[in-house]
């Protein structure tokens, strides 16, 4: 099996996590360091083992990009717009409250994704009713009311 260049990112990420937790672990009391140290060493060791395996694969079978497999059919605009919408939705919830933010988010997302208007309306009404009856009525959850209302 060829070494995938994309796996370099995985290794870097894992080493970064180890380094981040290690630095913060040093600030702990000595007797609280034992178990976190064990998990950091474990992750560091396994990542190094994977790095060695990658290097062996590169030597034996060569190197391939791997990007084409990881991002096969990736819709870049659609993905990032959806991601941005989710972030804005979470921010809006604090100001507009759960139900208003949900209606705005769902209308925007469904319209952006090309869902016909009738289906959009049905989905918005159905989800809001479901949340209201299941969470507010049944579970008694007080959902965020928002700063503006």
């Amino acid at each position: 099996m060829k070494m995938k260049k994309t796996d370099i990112g995985v290794v870097v990420f894992m080493y970064a996590i180890c380094a981040f937790f290690y630095v913060h672990m040093l600030q702990l009391q000595a007797n609280s360091q034992t178990y976190p140290r064990f998990t950091i060493v474990l992750l560091f060791g396994l990542t190094t083992l994977y790095l060695l395996q990658m290097l062996m694969n590169a030597k034996k079978h060569g190197v391939e990009s791997g990007v084409d497999k990881v991002f096969d059919g990736f819709q870049i605009v659609q993905f990032f717009v959806c991601l941005a919408m989710v972030i804005v939705y979470l921010l809006l919830m604090k100001f507009l409250g759960f139900f208003v933010a949900t209606i705005v988010f769902m209308l925007a997302a469904l319209t952006f994704l090309g869902v016909p208007k009738v289906h959009t309306l049905i989905a918005v009404v159905a989800i809001n009713l479901l949340v209201y009856f299941a969470f507010v009525q049944f579970l008694g959850v007080k959902l965020p009311a928002g700063l503006l209302f």
């Binding site: 939705y89 979470l90 988010f105 994704l113 989905a123 965020p144």
Partner: peptide
């Protein structure tokens, strides 16, 4: 999937919020 994306998002948000009523 176009309908599932926002619907599942809303359920994820409300589901996680409901645990401790905490954002």
């Amino acid at each position: 999937d176009a309908i599932l994306i926002p619907c599942v998002t809303v359920l994820c948000v409300v589901g996680s919020y409901a645990i401790h009523r905490n954002f």
